[in-house]
Amino acid sequence: MQEIYADLHIHIGSACGGQPVKVTASRKLNFQNILQESLYRKGLNLVGIIDSASPLVINDIEDLLDKGIMEELPEGGVKYQDKLFIILGSEIESREENGGQAHYLAYFPFLSQIKEFSQLLGNYITNINLSSQACRLTGREILNIVDELGGLLIPAHAFTPHKSFYGRCFSGYREVFSDEEWEKIPAIELGLSADTHLADFLSELAGKSFLSNSDAHSLGKIAREYNKMRLEDINFKEFKLALQRKKGRCITYNYGLDPRLGKYYSSYCLHCQKTVPLTGGERCSLCGSQKIIMGVKDRIINISKRNKSISPPWRPPYVHQIPLADVPGVGKKTLNKLLKSFGTEMEIIHQSGVNELSELVGTRIAGNIDKARSGKASIEPGGGGVYGKVMG
């Protein structure tokens, strides 16, 4: 067995020809640049590129395969330079029967399957070239399509107030899925404003693996959240076994932001224009207004059927971390200096000692890095679409 680092929600800002894919993402975020950044700066072993159903991106993938830069694996997945492995995926926005919208991540073993998925989805999406477009299908209908094609489906950023499974649409899975259908979903993605402690307030998630992914909209945001996985080899088959926790494969650690740093951790009153505690379930405690954006913490407590978080014995640790680029004192020059010395961000975070860091960047910045990677930094909570702040 080997342990590897994986970020399984990375967007494509544009195709290699410059055509837009994810409109809100950086144009530098194309397939080739993601591979370079993930391997040589971040130090990842496995990435999920979730705009791979766009025909523009499919053309880029086929070009890289034809040139021998990438290679498709018999067990599913794609290999880049024998060091980085790619899971091809798609983010889809549903239209649920109750009027809600939720985002789902679909992962497929082979390019042929995601091409077929793209062709099918084109019947329900106005512009299949663009990422995360509104789809005239419910989550149940999307699950059935993905399952028939041999893929996996999981709810994306499952608790955020906008366009998510629990945050926007449902209080429980039975509102959309049967028990049999729910069993086909091996995991949920936590999102930047949630962690294991918060998610495990919901008893129905006791059988699901949790993924902590970056949802990167720029190259620098890749691996701001990531997972450590135990696999025999790196391919789609092993990835699926890890999510299902079968044959010794599993997620061994989740690494991610303290939820208080997320944009939607705290509830936000649109009248007061500030984050506020709630009273009576859905009212601002300061002005009584119901014009609020309910934060992830309040939403989870609101829909939970129990008053405490209970994690199953097998649940891996969730380690609160702050990305290196967000650590006080670590600017672009300092980060490049660290990378030149240690190799990748994973090596800086997981292998460098405080004394080694101090010799290179001084005791103050070394101390900030150590606090950032161990969850000890001071934080001002975020909410209402504004990220929290690292105070030091």
Rank of each mutant, 00 (worst) to 15 (best):
M1I: 00
M1L: 02
E3Q: 14
S14C: 09
G17A: 10
N30G: 06
F31Y: 10
Q32I: 10
I34K: 03
Q36P: 09
Q36V: 12
L39V: 12
N45L: 03
V47G: 03
I50W: 09
I50E: 04
A53N: 12
P55G: 05
V57H: 06
I58Q: 13
N59W: 08
D60N: 15
D60Q: 11
D60R: 08
L64M: 15
L64Q: 15
L64N: 14
D66M: 15
G76P: 11
D82E: 15
F85V: 04
I87D: 08
G89K: 03
S90D: 11
S90Y: 04
E93I: 02
N98F: 11
H103P: 02
Y104P: 01
L105T: 08
Y107I: 01
Q113W: 02
Q113Y: 04
I114C: 07
E116H: 14
E116M: 14
F117K: 10
L120A: 06
N123E: 12
Y124S: 01
T126E: 05
T126F: 09
L130N: 08
S131P: 00
R136D: 07
E141R: 02
L143E: 04
N144G: 03
I145W: 05
D147V: 11
G150I: 04
L152Y: 04
L153K: 10
L153D: 00
P155V: 09
P161H: 02
S164R: 04
E175I: 10
D179H: 03
W182C: 01
E183I: 09
I185Y: 05
A187K: 00
I188F: 09
I188H: 06
L192K: 12
L192S: 11
A194Y: 00
T196C: 04
T196K: 05
F201N: 07
L202V: 05
S203I: 05
F210K: 14
S212T: 06
Y226K: 15
R230E: 01
L231S: 01
F239S: 01
A242G: 09
L243T: 00
Q244N: 15
Q244K: 15
T252D: 07
L257M: 08
L261E: 01
L261H: 05
G262W: 03
S266P: 00
S267F: 09
S267I: 11
H271Q: 12
Q273K: 14
Q273A: 12
K274R: 14
G280K: 15
G281K: 10
E282N: 14
R283G: 05
G288F: 01
G288L: 01
S289K: 13
I292A: 06
M294V: 14
G295Q: 01
V296T: 14
N302L: 15
S304E: 10
R306Y: 05
S311C: 13
P313W: 06
H320N: 14
P323T: 10
K332H: 14
T334V: 14
L335H: 13
K340C: 10
S341E: 11
T344C: 09
T344K: 07
I348Q: 11
H350Q: 12
Q351L: 12
S352Y: 12
S352C: 12
N355Y: 12
L357C: 07
E359G: 13
G362T: 13
T363P: 06
T363E: 15
I365G: 07
G367F: 13
K371A: 12
A372K: 10
S374P: 13
A377T: 04
S378W: 07
G384D: 02
V386T: 13
G388Q: 09
V390W: 06
M391D: 05
G392M: 07
